[in-house]
């Protein structure tokens, strides 16, 4: 399987503080790659490099190359809006818009003018909600406020909203950290289903979660990539002593 994302010698700075050091990594297509590591290790920062969400921070600076489908996303003429459509993102805290369930999912379709007509729009919304395993729970109340949903439903709504614009890559930043175990399980099942069509990068502080959902795992510490390996190997025979110490709970 080819690699969807290819990162070479990535350095990232917040002003004078370096947050990521010389990271080189490939993320294979249609797989789940998990990013683990102690708090502040740079895994979230790394994720936000991939859709240039860090652009909103004026003092942020990037060096090295990040190629998606062979194209450097930090090249000067990159269309960031198009990039973010292609690389969707689900955040740690669910952040639905103060709109109806339907309008939340329709939002990305509307702003990217993807639909032919009203029926097409409705079909796309339905598909996204089905793909995020939310349709059966909300189909009778599409026109009610998204804030009426439970935390887990809101997070799946945010996933539906991301899916609706037909991205190729989905970045998930601790998508289940604020949810109860049952809602978490639903999100995890969803992640495994989604990898059939999407390349997924998921940050998690929960190692069991990384073990359950991912094909490959990358371990970050203090801004450095310590190890990246197939998940099974990582959790049974890690190459690095540091990885083993972290996984077995000796620090973190």
């Amino acid at each position: 399987m080819g690699s969807k994302i290819n990162i070479k010698n990535l350095n990232f700075f917040y002003g004078a503080d370096q947050a990521l050091f010389d990271i080189s990594l490939k993320i294979p297509e249609r797989q789940v790659m998990a990013f683990i590591g102690p708090s502040g290790c740079g895994k979230s920062t790394f994720l936000r490099v991939l859709n240039r969400m860090n652009d909103t921070i004026p003092i942020a600076k990037v060096s090295g190359t990040v190629k998606i489908d062979g194209k450097d996303i930090y090249a000067p003429k990159t269309d960031v809006v198009a990039l973010r459509r292609k690389v969707g993102m689900v955040f740690q805290k669910s952040n639905p818009f103060p709109k109806t369930i339907f309008e939340n999912v329709a939002y990305g379709i509307r702003i990217n003018r993807m639909h032919k007509d009203k029926t097409d729009l409705e079909e796309r919304v339905e598909k996204a909600l089905k793909d995020s395993a939310l349709w059966d729970e909300v189909k009778d109340r599409l026109n009610t406020s998204a804030f009426g949903l439970s935390g887990g439903q809101q997070q799946r709504l945010c996933i539906a909203r991301a899916l609706a614009v037909q991205p190729e890559v989905i970045l998930m930043d601790e998508p289940a950290s604020a949810l109860d175990p049952i809602a978490t399980q639903k999100i995890e099942e969803l992640v495994v289903e989604l990898k059939e069509h999407y390349t997924i990068a998921i940050v998690t502080h929960n190692m069991q979660q990384a073990a359950r959902v991912s094909d490959r795992t990358a371990f970050f510490m203090l801004g450095k990539l310590i190890e990246v390996n197939p998940t099974e190997r990582m959790f049974t025979h890690p190459d690095e002593k540091l990885t083993e110490d972290y996984i077995t709970g000796r620090f973190g």
């Binding site: 809006v81 969707g88 990305g108 702003i111 991301a162």
Partner: peptide, 26 residues
């Protein structure tokens, strides 16, 4: 208005103007 609202819009490919509309809605 939480930054998360702006980021949600940006992450869907919203322009600065479209993001501002979301903020105003909030």
């Amino acid at each position: 208005v939480p930054t998360a609202q702006r980021e949600a819009a940006l992450a869907l490919g919203a322009t600065k103007w479209e993001t501002t509309v979301i903020v105003l809605g909030n």
